[in-house]
Design a protein around this nucleic acid. Sequence first.
DNA 1: TTATCATTCTATCAATTAATAGAATGATGG
DNA 2: CCATCATTCTATTAATTGATAGAATGATAA
Lengths: 224, 224
Amino acid sequence: MTCKQDLHNTLALVAQGLANGHRLTLLEHLAQSEASVERLANLADLSVGNASQHLQQLRRAGLVTAQRDGKQMFYRLTDERIITLLTLLRQIAETNLAEMERLLARLFADENASGEIKAMSRVELQAALETGEIALLDVRPQSEFAAGHLPEAINIPIDQLETMLTLLPRDKEIVAYCRGPYCVLSHEAVKKLRALGFKVRRFEEGFPEWKAAGLPVQRMELHS
Amino acid sequence: MTCKQDLHNTLALVAQGLANGHRLTLLEHLAQSEASVERLANLADLSVGNASQHLQQLRRAGLVTAQRDGKQMFYRLTDERIITLLTLLRQIAETNLAEMERLLARLFADENASGEIKAMSRVELQAALETGEIALLDVRPQSEFAAGHLPEAINIPIDQLETMLTLLPRDKEIVAYCRGPYCVLSHEAVKKLRALGFKVRRFEEGFPEWKAAGLPVQRMELHS
DNA sequence: TTATCATTCTATCAATTAATAGAATGATGG
DNA sequence: CCATCATTCTATTAATTGATAGAATGATAA
């Protein structure tokens, strides 16, 4: 009987890895690409020491692995399934927690206010990519784009959007995506581009979910 | 920026529901059927007060709902997806935590020791049920069987197994199942029945996983 | 209404966790 | 070998969590 309790305690250890907002933020960034402790600390707005400890807790929980490369320690998700786990957690939270709805309403405020077009689902996006009827825009930072992106996507980091408008078509609908459903980058991009007269909508998920679904991704070759 | 952190904190709240061995035990039992606080406290070997508090934490996490019926409060899972979430958590733990392997090795000790036949997968079981080549044995307590079970299953609670052997065929292979992969009941049943000369193996999952996969289940009609 | 019973609330204590700063480690490049 | 730099370890603090016992609540049945 103690054996089953031990099993549950060990399982709980994995869940405990997920049971902190900062660690979820770290996981969201790790879902884009592996990264060093320092980079993750910056992205998640944590001190390096604190980030290090959270990452070690994630490692103890079996959610990430670490690998030294020269001076730096690189962390990555152990598993594609962790993205699935996070997605499921998100979906359950969205349907069952009132607080979640309140926060999402705030995030999607612009979108709902003006009776906007709904974000595009993965299935719709797949179909639209095949017919070539849309242009795909990745608004994440260049480094994340380089580590992996959706096929045929153009990369314009959100802070360079205004200066690189010539890369975007006026005759096609544009679909913008970023890190995932809670990432604000694609929301911002849509808002900015709409104001400039582009026909544009969001992909409702992000790169990690696309990849975790087993769909094809591209990587930029780094000229070594 | 604080908004995204809030979202992650709220998501973390759900994960926190899962981040305790006792709560996982409670969820495992709730996956069988809804139950009162007292019943759950007994099943999970907790004091009623303590069980009540854990259940309320699960409720705050959006994992269970409560409904009063007369004097008693009945708790149930909010969602079939929670079983999927638990299964995914388990799978990730099994592949990524050494501790998990150690504990599972202990649980499956008998099975591995004697080079036993592997447990049956869900797909295999589905096929075998269609051809009718096996007999299906549910070794959970009668109340859980009544709340839902696999089609065509015979119910013999584990503690009555020896007294009801006549219900079991000698000419067919028997497949025993119980609450899930970590439940010891079907392991015990297999051990006992093997010793008595039956041809028997385990189903590697349990009733909740079968149900969550959308496969058909039966309920016993309660004559009111 | 009152007695009874299941459940929840409250207060308390011990144990665990998160954040911080500073020391220690360990790899690299001179 | 030594200096440098990224990361991890250590100690400390404040905050949170889990367990317990006993009081309070809320529904039922006499």
